[in-house]
Design a protein around this nucleic acid. Sequence first.
DNA 1: AATCCATCCTGTATGC
DNA 2: TGCATACAGGATGGAT
Length: 323
Amino acid sequence: MPELPEVEVVRRGLVSWVRGRTIESVDVLDPRSIRRHALGVEDFIGNLQGATVSDVVRRGKFLWLPLVDGSAHQQAAGNGQAPPSRVALMAHLGMSGQLLMQDAGVPDEKHLKVRLHLSPSAGMPGQLRFVDQRIFGGLFVTALVPTDDGGPGGLAESPLPLIAGEASHIARDPLDPAFSFDRFYQRLRARKTGLKRALLDQGLVSGIGNIYADEALWRARLHYARPTDKLRRADAFRLIDSARAVMLDALDAGGTSFDSLYVNVNGASGYFDRSLNAYGREGEPCKRCTAAGIHATIRREQFMNRSSYTCPVCQPRPRNGRW
DNA sequence: AATCCATCCTGTATGC
DNA sequence: TGCATACAGGATGGAT
C-alpha cells in the first residue's frame, strides 16, 4: 500500500515526465475521485486547463503538482523571472491510487478515474492518468500557502517555500532533512496513547502506514502498545532510526507491492515485500530470534481495525500497554 | 482539549 | 456452484 517510499517512487518517476508541460484538457470519468474538490467537476477542470506543471512535491503521503498560470508562464519566459505558483493539483493515493503516464492509444484502465491531456513533448507519453480501485484516494486543486520553515521538505530537489493548504497539518517525515527528533520526542511524550497509534498519526510524524509501522517497531524491538508518555528517549530514537532505515531500504527496492494495486508511473511493481520482517508473516519464524537460536513465531493481532504483526519474544507486550 | 473510531470503497479469498 | 463474510487500510469528521 502506498506509504512514504511508494509515494516518493511515484514522485521521482513523475517529475521528469510532467515538469514544464501544460495541461491541455481534463477528463473526469468518476467524480467520486475528486470529491475533496468542494467546488465540483467544472471548477476542478477550469483550474487545471491551460496551467503548466512546475514541479512535483511531497509531504508525507500527499503529493502535489504546483501549477503556473499559462499566460503568466508566457510572460515569465519574456522577462526571465519565474512567476509565483499559488495553486497546485493535489493527489493522495489512498489505498489503491495510481498515477500513470500513458500514451493516448493505451486503452482505458478498468478503474481509470481522471485523465490529464498534456502538451506534446518529444518521446514522452501524452497523458497522466489517475487510476483508483477503492476510491480512498483522489485529486483536488488546492491553494499554496507560505511556510516559514523552509518549504514542504520531502525529498524534492528545490521545493518552493509554499505548501499545499491541505497538507499544512502534516508533520515532516523521518527522511526529511528538516525532521526534528527533539520535537517529535517532546510531542510523543505529551500524548497518552499507544506507540503504534502515534506512529500512524501523520500530524506527529508522517509517511508511515501500517506496513512500515510494524516493520519499524519490529526493528526497534518495541511493542505497538507501549505507552507514549513513558517511552525512553533512546527507545524513541531507535524507533525513528528504524523507520528511517526501513523506508530508505524500501525506496531503494522501488517500494512494496503485494499485487498490481501499487505500481510506479510506468506500471512496474517494487519488490520490497521480499524484505519484510514482520508484516504479513503470521505463523512464520521471527528472523532475528531464529538467528539467535530462539524459537519464536510472528503473531497477528487485530488492532485499530487492522492487522498488527509482532514477535512475542523480542517485542514483549508491556504490562500497562495502551491501545 | 485530546483521543478514539466509524466511515468511505471494491476486489479477492475463504467458508459453508 | 453460489452466496455470504472477512479482509486489505489512509484520512477525516464526529463522538466521547
